[in-house]
């Protein structure tokens, strides 16, 4: 074999060896646990904190309101849709107040007239005309609209 080729092969061998060593040390440890990705990523993603705690947790302390709501037409409307994520509040209610949406615009997000909203699923009102100028909650209880 000519000298040049020998030297070149040597150079390539060194290069490939370096690549293999790098590959060995840089490959993350849980690689290929399930597939061509880091297996640990699954636990990392599932380890994130949940911000919405769902109705059962609220009901532990606010049982009257929860009870009220279960009897009304807003039964399927989760507390946290209106009050915002409750993970901090549920842990420490005194220092973490939730938002209380009292303005008309809030209820109208769901209840404005729009032909695209199915009429049989939700009752819609004319945003301007329906008891103009008054907050919805003066007549409707948000936790049980017909009270």
């Amino acid at each position: 074999m000519p000298l040049q080729v020998k030297r070149l092969l040597l150079a390539f061998a060194v290069f490939i060896a370096i690549m293999l060593v790098l590959k060995y040390f840089l490959t993350p440890d849980s690689w290929r646990e399930y597939g061509a990705y880091r297996g640990k990523a699954l636990t990392e993603i599932s380890g994130k904190e949940a911000k919405y705690v769902e109705m059962e947790t609220c009901a532990e302390c606010h049982d009257t309101i929860a009870g009220l709501k279960t009897q009304g037409l807003h039964v399927s409307v989760q507390c946290e849709i209106c009050h915002g994520p409750g993970y901090k509040h549920a842990d420490d209610p005194d220092n973490n107040d939730l938002e209380i949406p009292r303005e008309r615009q809030f209820c109208l997000r769901c209840h404005t007239k729009n032909m695209a909203s199915p009429q049989d699923i939700i009752k819609q009102i004319d945003a301007v005309e329906h008891n103009e100028g008054e907050e919805c909650i003066t007549c409707h209880n948000p936790h049980q609209p017909w009270l």
Binding site: L42, I45, S46, A50, Y52, E54, S76, Q78, I81, C110
Partner: peptide, 17 residues
């Protein structure tokens, strides 16, 4: 995924009235 693993519904499903 983090909610599913904790036995909660995905946020969008929870929020859908």
């Amino acid at each position: 995924y983090h909610r599913l693993e904790k036995g909660l519904n995905p946020a969008c499903m929870m929020a859908c009235p």
